[in-house]
Design a protein around this nucleic acid. Structure first.
Lengths: 195, 195
DNA sequence: GTCTATACATCGATAGAC
DNA sequence: GTCTATCGATGTATAGAC
């Protein structure tokens, strides 16, 4: 199977996604042109369409793969005490989010630029992730290790709080990741009445 | 001072801002055209430029006036105990945000579409608002009414948590505003170690 | 697989009539 | 103050050569 001259499909495909993720995060989906993406990749605009059907599919692919990664990388062990599981979730969510700030940003910033069908699919994945935290909270409530008024609201409140880290964190800043995890865990522990 | 025929400046001006705020929030600044705004207002696109210099100024005006409203409506009384002041802030922030979900959404969603100069001005206003919460937390820490590791991080974490309400709240939903305020206040009270 | 070239729509903003 | 008309730039996407 001879290679076409100039063919670099094995790197161009992923590169398009990397470039698009970065540009979308920085300037917004609607503000970024296909020409701009192509230029950063190092090809002409027309060449992009050998890899993706259209711009919308590119955005959806970025959001879907991010949500699937997020779900697939989280491992909960219901055998452990709820507080141990909650601490693991907090540290996982912060670490995972800080490793992919662009994707995290896109995943709640560009939902409105998805078609209704694509939006529903992403919302479903997001719901699954929220459920992963909610089940821990409900278990903790059951065993008496945690105390709060509403598991659903607490789930949404905690995820919003944790995800907010991506808005201000800068590599090499005042606090390292371990310390940030410690601080947020103590906030969460208090919020769920586990002191 | 005779009115020009067809002139409706006293309503068209504010209407442009209302329409733009709503459209920008729903579809994003970059995705909304001036023709779209004009159509929703009920004029032709060219007429918009009698009220605003350009699209960028329209966005900046929306964000700036929202941040100034947010700052101007908040009243803190340093004489009160820190926990009382914190509860007031929590309820104020939730209530004020839910009254203006579009503006709140824009104010952290469209920052990247501001020119650098405009961005700096909005960031400065945002910093003032964060400082309003931070001073309460530091006072609470001083008096021993609150306990947490880092006042700056706690400030950002709490604001992210509270603002998140705008992402899921729907009028006529399962919980009314009073109840939502109660639930979030108990989460915050726990987070700052005030139990 | 990538290029050049281009079709066709739409963009922000302006000019001049009324 | 608003209209019609339009400029010049830019948008997504496609066609056909190599």
């Amino acid at each position: 199977m001879a290679r076409t001259q100039g063919s670099r499909s094995e790197i161009t495909g992923p590169l398009i996604r990397d470039v698009a993720r970065s540009l979308f995060a920085r300037e917004g989906y609607a503000a970024v042109s296909m020409r701009q993406i192509a230029s950063a990749v190092g090809v002409q605009a027309g060449a992009l369409y050998a890899y993706i059907p259209d711009k919308q599919a590119l955005l959806f692919d970025l959001l879907e793969s991010h949500m699937q990664d997020t779900l697939a990388s989280w491992h909960d062990d219901p055998v452990n005490p709820p507080l141990i599981r909650l601490e693991a979730f907090v540290r996982y969510h912060i670490g995972f989010s800080l490793d992919r700030t662009d994707a995290v940003f896109l995943s709640y910033m560009e939902l409105r630029n998805l078609t209704p069908e694509n939006f529903d699919r992403i919302a479903r994945l997001r719901g699954q992730y929220e459920a992963a935290l909610e089940v821990i909270l409900r278990d903790g409530q059951k065993t008496g290790a945690m105390q709060f008024a509403d598991a659903k609201l607490t789930t949404l409140a905690l995820i919003a709080m944790l995800t907010g880290v991506t808005n201000w964190y800068r590599e090499g800043g005042r606090l390292d990741r371990q310390r940030i995890g410690d601080i947020y865990w103590s906030l969460v522990r208090g919020a769920v009445g586990a002191d």
